[in-house]
């Protein structure tokens, strides 16, 4: 089971955001995607999840072509994601945010659920058990009945990851999970990510926090101006003269990354303050 990008391309009008990217993502590993602002990291995630159409090339999971399917079909093929800007169902409770993920598997018997209360009760307990376990894993069990939108920012990030995990996806795409988190929360997230690693799950993490990336990722893809610049283990990425020269090495670009991380915190700080 692998997720493969075949000569992937994305254009916004005349602007080429992704230029001929080919790579393979393996199960059992955590893959990091790094690169400065505008490198095309989110675009890769968005195309994989079906939020954006691809302009050229192909994305496949096992032998199945994902690109071209509708977003909900891609989700039902086992691809789950989080968003760079948190997108929860704000007015639903924390628990409901997870429960609703059972829709694809349970909607077929919705008539029975509506008309036959004992069946509905069984379903409800069933959903609740699975979701509560996930909430506990992320330390959110005490928030189960709170409105998702009322949670502190860091908790919302965790909840979004929990929501992505309800269906036990084969591919988990995380777009900047540590953005806006404080040091303590980032440490917690790093631990959770390591625990989520599983032989039958492909994990892809886009992240600006280099400590997190270097400590948790097994493989790293370096993006630069829409092109795949380098890929390898964290040690290889850090040692690569290519990356050093063209990217990490130059004072400019390493600054780019650091500025990006700082910008992100400032932007998200605003959202966090506005909500509380």
């Amino acid at each position: 089971m692998t997720l493969v990008f075949h000569n992937l391309r994305k254009q916004y009008g005349s602007h080429v955001a992704i230029d001929d990217v080919s790579t393979v993502f393996q199960p059992g590993l955590i893959h990091g995607i790094i690169g400065p602002n505008g490198a095309g990291k989110s675009t890769l995630i968005n195309m994989t999840a079906g939020s954006y159409l691809v302009s050229g090339g192909r994305i496949s999971l096992d032998d199945r072509t994902l690109s071209g399917l509708k977003k909900y079909q891609i989700a039902n093929s086992g691809v789950a994601r989080t968003y760079q800007n948190i997108r929860l169902f704000d007015q639903m409770t924390v628990l409901e945010n997870l429960e609703v993920c059972f829709y694809p598997t349970q909607v077929g018997q919705v008539w029975r659920e509506i008309l036959w209360p004992p069946f509905a009760a069984k379903r409800r307990i069933n959903r609740r058990d699975v979701c509560m376990e996930l909430l506990s894993f992320f330390g959110l069990q005490h928030y189960a009945d709170a409105e998702a939108g009322s949670l502190p920012y860091g908790r919302q990030r965790m909840l979004e990851i929990a929501r992505a995990l309800v269906t036990n996806p084969r591919v988990l795409l995380l777009d900047e999970p540590a953005a806006g988190l404080n040091h303590h929360e980032t440490t917690e997230l790093t631990a959770r990510l390591a625990e989520l690693k599983s032989p039958d799950r492909i994990m892809i993490v886009v992240e600006h926090d280099m400590d997190l990336v270097m400590s948790v990722c097994d493989r790293i893809v370096v993006m630069h101006h829409g092109k795949l610049l380098f890929q390898g283990t964290p040690a290889e990425v850090q040692a690569s003269s290519d990356v050093q020269l063209a990217y990490l090495g130059t004072a400019n670009d390493i600054d780019d990354i650091k500025t990006a991380a700082k910008d992100r915190r400032a932007q998200l700080g605003i959202r966090a303050r506005r909500r509380t």
């Binding site: 909900y72 997108r87 993920c101």
Partner: peptide, 28 residues
């Protein structure tokens, strides 16, 4: 009962964020 069913929850998700609802596999 419909509102409390999985379909009702999907409606709520669509109301809150249609695109995110698609992202969790709901055929909106």
């Amino acid at each position: 009962r419909m509102e409390k069913s999985i379909l009702g929850k999907a409606w709520a998700a669509i109301r809150e964020d249609q695109d995110a609802a698609r992202g969790i596999g709901i055929n909106t």
